[in-house]
């Protein structure tokens, strides 16, 4: 005997999984396109995939953000044939540090922080994480750190722009009926837990 509340919860969970899968697929596609596009400087990438991680974080919480990041990196590497290459470890360490900082910031200031702030620390974390791994694995030479300021400056700008994009995306998604359930949650500053865990 299932109540209508149980049904709506179940539906919402399925919906969440479907959207998460879509986010991951999009993130991988964006990641791959960015990888394949010619870049004037090989190490500078805008990191558009992070838009989807930020969006997932605000819609479904930290766990969802981790799922998007890790799956994107792993599946992206499988797709591009870069698994366990130095580039893979660069993007892994960048992704790990970025997600740690983003979920950490989101966890500390859940009601006050917006997508732009989260995206910004994510971008800076991504750049630092990559450089750290580059130093550990590839060059092991202090001059690697000479590039740090330029990396940080570049990621500062791309972080702001990605955050803006995530903000627009969130606004657009929350207008859609599929996210009607979440709209109520947005009153609690997008904390999904409040209604999945306590539906009654």
């Amino acid at each position: 005997m299932t109540s209508s509340v149980d049904k709506s919860l179940e539906l919402e969970q399925v919906r969440q999984r479907v959207f998460l899968a879509l986010f991951i697929a999009l993130a991988i596609a964006v990641h791959a396109i960015e990888f394949l596009l010619p870049s004037p400087l090989p190490w500078f990438r805008v990191g558009l995939a992070n838009i989807l991680t930020v969006t997932a974080l605000f819609l479904y919480g930290a766990q969802a953000a981790w799922t998007v990041t890790l799956t994107r990196i792993l599946v992206g590497a499988l797709l591009l044939g870069t698994l366990f290459s130095p580039g893979f470890f660069l993007s892994l360490s960048g992704g790990l540090l970025a997600t740690v900082l983003m979920t950490g910031l989101y966890g500390c200031l859940p009601t006050r922080i917006g997508p732009v702030g989260v995206s910004l620390v994510g971008a800076l974390g991504h750049a630092s994480g990559q450089l750290l791994m580059a130093w550990l694995l590839i060059i092991r030479h202090p001059s690697v750190w000479l590039m740090l300021p330029y990396f940080l400056l570049f990621s500062f700008i791309s972080g702001l722009l990605n955050g803006l994009a995530a903000s627009y995306l969130l606004e657009f998604l929350l207008k859609h009926p599929a996210f009607a359930q979440l709209k109520t949650a947005r009153a609690g500053r997008l904390r999904i837990k409040s209604h999945t865990r306590n539906p009654l």
């Binding site: 766990q63 981790w66 799922t67 890790l70 792993l74 470890f89 892994l92 590839i138 092991r140």
Partner: peptide, 27 residues
Amino acid sequence: MLRRTLLPLAAVLLALWLWLGATPSDG
């Protein structure tokens, strides 16, 4: 869900460790 994220993470860290051990970056 937690197990599902931790397991690949652990696998990746193990691979990283093996890879680091196999390629000495000594000059």
